[in-house]
């Protein structure tokens, strides 16, 4: 297993099925249907990326994506982004509460959306100040910095922090 990070010989590509294929070095064996995962999806997004085979065995842990072949790096980033979806909220338009159930009408970097939030506890502020809203289906929506929102959105968020 390679944990030494950047390795120009390391290659990742897609096969015809669209699945990822991994090869540690030009002469090495290839592994099919591998997956990539971030070890610190919230705190160190671009470091520590794990390449895993289909049985969840780690093939390689990349400390950083620097130094990888350009195409491989692009592919890894593409895959990582495809697995993630936690839209950034840019404005809160309306929060309707019906008992515990809240409907948040928000604008996000991915487009406008309405969230059904099951209970007050699903709107949390982390120690870092980031606010996470979990909707009923388990999707996560985030506000990186409440202070950067407009005044109205900010007061709506603060009023509903669980």
């Amino acid at each position: 297993m390679n944990t030494n990070g950047p390795d120009a010989g390391l290659r990742l590509w897609r096969d015809e099925r669209g699945r990822l294929v991994y090869r540690a070095a030009p002469e090495a064996e290839t592994s099919e249907n591998v997956r990539v995962a971030r070890c610190f999806p919230w705190t160190r997004r671009d470091e520590y990326v794990s390449i895993r085979d289909k049985d969840e065995k780690e093939l390689c842990l990349l400390r950083s994506l620097d130094g990888l072949a350009a195409e491989t790096r692009r592919l890894i980033e593409e895959e990582l982004n495809a697995d993630e979806f936690a839209p950034r909220i840019t404005a809160v338009e309306r929060v309707e509460t019906m008992f515990d159930l809240m409907t948040w009408k928000v604008r996000t970097a991915s487009g406008p959306v309405e969230l059904q939030v099951r209970q007050a506890e699903d709107v949390r502020q982390l120690d870092s100040g980031r606010v996470l809203i979990r909707d009923h289906a388990g999707g996560t929506f985030q506000i990186e910095n409440v202070a950067e929102l407009d005044a109205r959105s900010r007061s709506l968020v603060e009023e509903h922090l669980g």
């Binding site: 015809e16 099925r17 669209g18 997956r35 495809a82 697995d83 993630e84 979806f85």
Partner: peptide, 18 residues
């Protein structure tokens, strides 16, 4: 279905091609 964190992908592979 390739399950991810937050978003997943549904793939249709026909005769071995995506």
């Amino acid at each position: 279905i390739v399950a991810g964190a937050g978003s997943s992908r549904f793939r249709v592979i026909r005769q071995g091609r995506l």
